[in-house]
Design a binder for these strands. Structure first.
Length: 377
DNA sequence: TTTTCCCGCCACTGG
DNA sequence: CCAGTGGCGGGAAAA
């Protein structure tokens, strides 16, 4: 059965509305297609918004997420540097280091209250000791940053790179990143609302092939699998299916029918008038593949399969037995630290961290060897 | 019904 | 003051 080439009937119908065609993931794919080419080195938010045919607000979402992984970096107001997929590995390394550092020293975070600190248990982080009073005034000069999409993204990534072969369920991620969803005592923290951000992040990562949406083998629980650099890089975003060369058209949204703002419709110059046609430059990726020579096999694919994480992952995960044992000493301390959670003692969180620490241990050894091997220049 | 998550209001930020 | 940013969550499409 030939795939439905054109479903004109639908796309033509002015009242047709499909949520999928407007997904952040798709938008991100297009974004990447436009900028992931040699020659590009800076991005203008306005330009991006015009080319993609979306409101600027959406660009901020994408840009913030991409920046967390190193693909972009802020240059100035309205301007970003394009770093490319090749910048991801380094960014991940940094995140990893940062994660470790934080875990160890975070315990004493008492006043620093700044910089990105993996303040798990979400929320106003430190202080907030017992129940001093109402949550508002005593805040620092805004902990707005602490709730940013960018930070959330980084923490999300840390979850993966700090563990070995991963398949993290949505629930676990949500629990670790934001506070516990069903936290009993107080903190009716509206984390449920924040889970939306998790979906956003997952969608753009999916479009980059950094992760993949799946579900646990048995339980139907949704989960994310880390694909790493292999997935992304070189081929850039593998077009989802066919080319979804479909760009949003300004007046087409039925939701905007009563354009309240009549935004900047008459864009600066943006000569391109034809709307139904977009240069599908996605197919032939640029030839400058990121030097992923030898592919270094990345973290092995020997993923779970062996042991499945039940819906209620029992604490102490058996842990693979291949772990080395030279760093044991140091790790030991870490584990202690991990289990010592002064505030908001959250069972699930502790388990997660314990797991990550253990995973980190073995991974570290592996990397070490690898490094020696390919240690060249 | 629940899960996923788009849209855009409007508070905040940096000039 | 203003334009650029980006939390945040209502509520509707998708499963």
């Amino acid at each position: 059965m030939s795939s439905v080439a054109h479903r004109e009937s639908e796309s033509k119908n002015p009242y047709y509305y499909s949520r999928k065609e407007k997904s952040l993931g798709l938008l991100c794919s297009n974004f990447l297609n436009f900028y992931n080419q040699d020659g590009v080195d800076s991005i203008g938010l306005d330009d991006a918004a015009n080319r993609l045919g979306v409101e600027r607000r959406r660009i901020y979402d994408i840009v913030n997420i991409l920046e967390s992984v190193g693909v972009l970096s802020r240059k100035a107001k309205n301007q970003y540097f394009w770093k490319g997929f090749s910048a991801i590995p380094r960014a991940l390394d940094e995140l990893k280091e940062e994660a470790l550092r934080e875990n160890f020293s975070t315990s004493g975070v008492f006043h620093s209250a700044n910089v990105s600190s993996l303040n798990h248990c979400g929320g106003p982080s430190n202080s907030k000791t017992v129940r001093k009073d109402k949550p508002s005034v005593s805040n620092k000069v805004d902990n707005r940053k602490e709730k940013s999409l960018g930070l959330l993204t980084k923490n999300f990534v840390k979850l993966f790179i700090c563990s070995h072969e991963d398949l993290i369920s949505l629930d676990n991620a949500a629990t670790a990143l934001l506070g516990d969803i069903h936290d009993p005592t107080a903190m009716r923290n509206n984390s449920a609302a924040k889970v939306r951000r998790l979906y956003d992040i997952a969608n753009v990562f999916s479009s980059m092939n950094l992760i993949e949406k799946t579900q646990h083998p048995e339980s139907r629980k949704p989960a994310f699998r880390w694909l790493g650099i292999n997935g992304s890089s070189k081929n850039g975003p593998t077009s989802l299916e066919f080319n979804d060369s479909k760009r949003r058209v300004f007046g087409a949204e039925i939701t905007n029918t009563l354009s309240k703002k009549s935004k900047s419709e008459s864009s600066i110059d943006c000569n391109s008038n034809e709307k139904a046609d977009m240069p599908m430059l996605m197919k032939h990726n640029n030839s400058k593949d990121t030097h992923d020579r030898s592919s270094m096999e990345q973290q092995g694919r020997y993923s779970s399969k062996g042991f499945v994480f039940g819906p209620f992952t029992p604490a102490s995960v058996p842990k693979v037995g291949d772990s080395g044992n030279k760093n044991e000493r140091r790790v030991k301390d870490l584990e202690d630290l991990a289990s010592y959670r002064p505030q908001y003692h959250n069972q699930a969180l502790s388990d997660l961290f314990a797991h990550y620490v253990a995973a980190w241990k073995s991974w570290n050894v592996e990397v070490d060897e690898k490094k020696q091997t390919q240690e060249v220049s």
